[in-house]
Simulated assay, not measured.
Amino acid sequence: MKKFLLFASVAAFAVSCNDSLKENEFLVSGTIDTIYNGKQVFLKEAPKERMAQPVALDTAVVENGKFTFRGMAETPQERFLFIEGEEKNAPIRFFAEEGNITINVNKDTIYNSTVTGTFNNEVLAKYNKLNNEVSKKGQELSQEYTKASQSQDAEAVKKIEEQFEAFSDEMYTKFKAFIEENPTAEISIQAFPSLLRSQEATYEELKAIFDKLPQSSKDSDLGKKISEYLEKKKQADAAKSATSVGKQVPDFAAPTPEGKMLSVKEAMGKVTIIDLWASWCGPCRKENPNVVAMYNELHGKGLNILGVSLDEDGDKWKQAIAADKLTWQHISNLKGWDEPIAKQFGVNSIPATLVLDANGVIVARDLRGDELKAKVEELLAK
């Protein structure tokens, strides 16, 4: 069993930072604005389960703008510091591990306090800086997108969507480099989920990065969840490869809203779009008016659409079809992300589209807007 013993000092640096430390011993030396003199500092254990509350471990009192914690940790342990009166703010995160750890509390933004002195805390500081930069950029783009959407500026929306794609690639590159530069750091496993946001990253790429992490990280709860995700990613990539451009569309069938079975072969036209969507998917519903306009214009020339829903609630599925005036054919097994047709095509995000020619050959994947219409018109003109 891992041991973690703590004892706090209420005196200002009762033990000097220069005192020699025993094996696995750590000393946290904190400085904080003197307005907090007499306030308590709470040391808490990071929760092991999502939504759980941190577990209290020890308490120190601020004297002369200083506080200390001293204890033992056989392995690096993620910990939080809460300042009395500031509990509503995000806590200070650090790793309790052998060595002298210095914490300079930022009274204006507590969670941005500086933690230095040991390997994992130095790397954590780099991660926090990177994460703050990425979060700030993401928030700025989101605000711009909302503003453009509300003003119905289609050109601005398209431009920001392109910026989002470039930002996603940039974020993937930066977090990938961070993990590869710090594979043994405790925080690296927590940085890994940022890579999973990329729609372009393959299983092989992600698995190669994951394999560089220590076994202890892989065996953690988060590591196990990532392993499960990667296995699903492996299967999805294989399915996507089997249904890539140039391949014959595999046969499939599912119930219509009326409960009758309908196959893809029965729904095909001169050009066929397989449209994977769901009533709960905001981007899907936003795109529907464009698809409706294209269908109304080109259906008479040979365009058919087969909607495949990732809904689970049949009533909401039917209501969305009626509300968005989706007059083409629809099917769904009502299994959400377990929809077998989505798995058959390796689809892990929606909206997603496949364009088929008259022979059922896949000629394009994941086109939207003007690009989708241009491809359909090109095929109808042949």
Rank of each mutant, 00 (worst) to 15 (best):
A11N: 14
A12H: 07
A12G: 08
F13A: 10
L21I: 00
L21Y: 01
I35F: 07
G38T: 03
P54Q: 04
D58F: 01
A60C: 03
V61L: 06
T68C: 10
F69L: 02
E74M: 03
T75W: 01
Q77F: 04
Q77E: 06
I110P: 11
V123A: 02
K126E: 12
K126T: 09
L130S: 05
N132D: 14
E133T: 14
V134P: 09
Q139N: 11
L141W: 13
L141Y: 10
S142R: 15
Q143G: 13
Y145L: 11
A148M: 06
K159F: 14
E165V: 11
A166Q: 09
F167K: 08
E170D: 11
T173K: 14
T173W: 00
E180C: 00
P183K: 00
F192Y: 09
E204V: 00
A208T: 00
K225S: 11
Q235I: 12
A239W: 04
E266P: 03
E266I: 05
W280V: 05
C281D: 06
C284N: 12
V292H: 01
N296L: 03
H299F: 04
G302S: 15
G302L: 07
L306I: 11
G314D: 09
G314P: 04
D315W: 06
D315K: 08
W328S: 04
H330R: 13
L334G: 06
Q344T: 15
Q344V: 09
T353Q: 14
I362R: 10
I362A: 05
V363L: 12
E371K: 12
L379W: 08
